[in-house]
Nucleic acid binder design. Structure first.
Length: 175
DNA sequence: CACCAGATCCTCT
DNA sequence: GAGGATCTGGTGG
């Protein structure tokens, strides 16, 4: 299996488009000589402006600084004991992102990581990966296209697990 | 320094 | 569907 990182222009688009198109793509984690691969099956977009649920809504701080990087960078943050992974979308200083909410096992991982905290756990995502450039082929975390992906129906819904801006249709998942 | 809000998850009913 | 476990940095005194 050839695993090539998606280019920056894939991520340099509106978060809703990136969130939708990330379904079926492969999340790749290189770790201690091994390669973990999961197929992305659920995502959520977070907007740069007018989105109270986005971590960037109140401006830049040390916690969310990675959201202000250029498209294709990782925004890794913790929620209680869990580590969550976002990919930054749109250009620099346009702080939007897509949360990877679930992956299916492809290689090296077992079970279904059917929640953002479980994705972080299954693929050993750590804070050290916060801010890395996921379009850089030398990095230990990136997203690759899957040439053999099957056509599956994409569903859209409002986001879950948040208390503000609940009504935006920014959650994408396979039927 | 104290307080508290979370993009969660697991274990009960 | 409710409640608790458990962690970190933002915010305000």
């Amino acid at each position: 299996m050839e695993l090539v990182a998606l280019p920056r222009n894939f991520f340099d688009r509106a978060p809703a488009l990136v969130a939708r198109d990330l379904l079926g793509k492969l999340l790749v984690r290189r770790l201690e000589g091994k390669t973990l691969v999961g197929r992305i099956v659920e995502t959520e977009g977070y907007l740069a402006t007018g989105d109270e649920a986005s971590h960037s809504h109140k401006g830049k701080n040390t916690r969310n600084a990675s959201m202000f990087k250029d498209a294709g960078h990782a925004y890794v943050h913790t929620l209680r004991q869990y580590v969550l992974l976002d990919v930054v979308t749109e250009g620099k200083d346009t702080p939007s992102a897509v949360l990877i909410r679930a992956v299916e096992p492809v290689r090296g991982i077992t079970g279904v990581a059917d929640g953002p905290g479980k994705v972080g756990r299954a693929m050993d995502i750590t804070r050290a990966l916060d801010g890395i450039d996921m379009t850089d082929p030398d990095e230990d975390l990136f997203i690759a296209d899957d040439k053999k992906q099957l056509a599956r129906k994409v569903c859209v819904s409002s986001r879950i697990g948040i208390s503000k801006a609940k009504d935006l249709p920014l959650r994408f998942y396979y039927e």
